[in-house]
Design a binder for these strands. Structure first.
Lengths: 131, 131
DNA sequence: CTTACGCCTTCCAATAGTTGGAAGGTCAAG
DNA sequence: CTTGACCTTCCAACTATTGGAAGGCGTAAG
């Protein structure tokens, strides 16, 4: 199938497929006589795999590793598990940072009148205090 | 003071200060005879303001607005409050997405042996299921 | 046959935010 | 006068994706 159909089937944009190929995330596609990329069902599976991994927040670097592990039948499951758990830790770190920001901002907003007067604890805090 | 000292005082990297100036986040600095940027205490305050707003996760676009509101004495506090609360909503959205990813990955990792065998529910799920 | 339209190709640029380097000018001390 | 620390501008990289331009290919209709 052509790249358009592969895109529709896998849910990965045609432009993105070319990009993934160019940075080596996925193997280079075979070409037709006219130079069109040709995809098999197996190729589409890789694309879907990448899409799902992105959906779980893995970086392209991590996904490159995951694709390698996926295609490597002699892989050990611990490699994958370590990658996944490291990723979980990163996300948990990010979550707690965001929660801290939300807490601070909500606290500041609570004391902000939100009317036409210029007094605003949010601005005052950004201007004067150590956030 | 020169850009180096302004950087040290405000906590914003000299390189970043020039960048902020170039994209219009902060006003253009005055120059010495030799062309060096010269900063006043007020300029440093703006830089610190920007740094704190970044620390709260505001985008540069939002910070541009915030700086404008800060310097505008006739602003209404509701403008700032709306900006802040919109930002909070965005962050809360991001938090729940991350939490959902963490939950899914932890669930998958729980059933992964993490030994030398190739069986791995994480990989299997990425390959076959709708994540 | 030829025109039209939709798909394909490559390359180049933009987004957000920062960081890094190269090549060169300036300033103060030794 | 030279050394070294500072400053200047410009250009490129990072992550991941999206957009456009310019051109080739494939098929259906006039």
């Amino acid at each position: 199938m052509n790249i358009g159909e592969a895109a529709k089937t896998s849910g990965v944009n045609a432009k993105l497929i070319r990009h993934y190929e160019s940075i080596g995330i996925i193997p280079k596609a075979n070409r037709s006589d006219a130079g069109y990329r040709v995809y098999s069902d197996a190729d589409v599976n890789i694309l879907s795999f990448v899409k799902r991994a992105r959906g779980l927040g893995f970086s392209m670097k991590e996904i490159k590793k995951l694709v390698g592990l996926w295609r490597n039948k002699s892989r050990s499951s611990s490699d994958v598990k370590n990658l996944a758990l490291t990723h979980v830790k990163d996300m948990e770190q990010k979550i707690s940072e965001l929660q801290s920001m939300v807490k601070t901002l909500n606290h500041l907003a609570k004391f902000c009148h939100g009317d036409n007067r210029p007094d605003c604890p949010i601005i005052d805090s950004l201007a004067k205090e150590k956030a």
